[in-house]
Design a protein around this nucleic acid. Structure first.
Lengths: 202, 202
DNA sequence: AGTATACGATACAGTCTGTATGCTAAAGTT
DNA sequence: AACTTTAGCATACAGACTGTATCGTATACT
């Protein structure tokens, strides 16, 4: 969202970049300290000392504002190509672990809730962060498959879910901590699951 | 929450059971049709034709109300002991799949968001639904371990997360459908992951 | 100078929250 | 039958937030 706008030359008074920067920082700060519910247009406008109308000019509602901030924070962070599938995946999930250690942990619930009401927002968020991340991980899996580390014909979408969903799940429900050691364990678990061995234990 | 209250004899005018029943039905209906945001004390009270104060007498806030309805809908549904680990797990995840096909799919995001603000509510929900479900699945895994189907020393919490989190994840973000066929695949994937074979493919 | 857009301030109607108050209804207790 | 206790209903209220609108001012480009 909010592309670099390399389009036609802008007219009129330009936007105040300070507001955009301050708003993102304020949203992340409020998310971390006071949670999703405390993020309101009103509240954020007060914090950055601008008028509410200036925020409404940029984002049509609170959920778009939060989405914008979260996209900036979480980023796309593709899995790299290190030559080792295990390393590629560990690096990819590490970005998840790191993100949920920050202000995002308390944001995804609210964001997911808003996505349920607003299909356009849901598409936007998926396209901005979920899809690129998954694409890069899927590519890593494909490289691994070519090297014989992954059983052919496996449902890679499900594999991706099993690999990443636990981070979201723990961030959402807090039933177990998100630790650094989790990265190695979850990757190990699913590499074992995906290995092209004797697949049978009924 | 709201135990059967086998305590001391109640005094005064008894609660109107119709309200409790109607409220739960109304909450689930609104969740399904209009999503989490549309669930408000005001709105629900209008629907069941009772006064807002009658609802506040029962639940201190909207989030407790939703939690109550969701707990009733999702239930505890333990994994049974069929003698087959695979079957036990498939039955357990089937209850998840089924639940997220209903009105709960759009509720968990909002609920998780509220849990982030209200630690007491979070504990309550975990204790009422998450923990019993996990306990029963953990027991099933322990039985499987005793039968030699699970590698000893495996992190069972993580295994449980990898097994169940994909349902929540898909319900929340909608990037992939929650299908009936998913049950067999995910159980298969994680039984393979947990199998006590040669655990090494660096 | 003229045009176009942004910013800040203010206002407004609408919705929801939580709390409070009074009145009536329905049960058990004495 | 009177009393006590709690539930339900209606109403009110202050506070917060939402979205929209309007107006004057500021800042860019042409």
């Amino acid at each position: 969202m909010r592309s670099i706008n390399s389009g036609p030359k802008p007219r009129g008074r330009p936007r105040d970049g300070r507001i955009d920067r301050d708003v993102v920082a304020a949203v992340l700060g409020v998310l971390r300290l006071r949670g999703y519910r405390a993020v309101t247009i009103e509240n954020i406008a007060r914090r950055v000392r601008s008028a509410r109308t200036s925020l409404y000019r940029r984002w049509p509602s609170k959920r778009h504002l939060v989405a914008f901030a979260v996209v900036h924070e979480l980023g796309t962070q593709p899995a790299p190509d290190t030559g080792s599938l295990r390393e590629d995946l560990e690096i990819a999930v590490e970005t998840l672990r790191h993100a949920f250690a920050g202000p995002l942990g308390s944001a995804i619930g609210g964001l997911a809730s808003d996505m349920a009401h607003d299909p356009a927002l849901a598409r936007l968020i998926r396209a901005a962060v979920l899809t690129p991340r998954r694409d890069s991980m899927r590519a890593a899996l494909a490289r691994g498959e070519a090297r014989g580390q992954i059983a052919p014909g496996l449902d890679l979408e499900l594999l991706l879910d099993a690999l990443t969903a636990p981070y979201y799940f723990r961030a959402l429900f807090g039933h177990a901590p998100i630790t650094a050691g989790m990265n190695e364990k979850i990757v190990d678990l699913l590499l074992q699951a995906a290995a092209p061995q004797a697949r049978s234990n009924t």
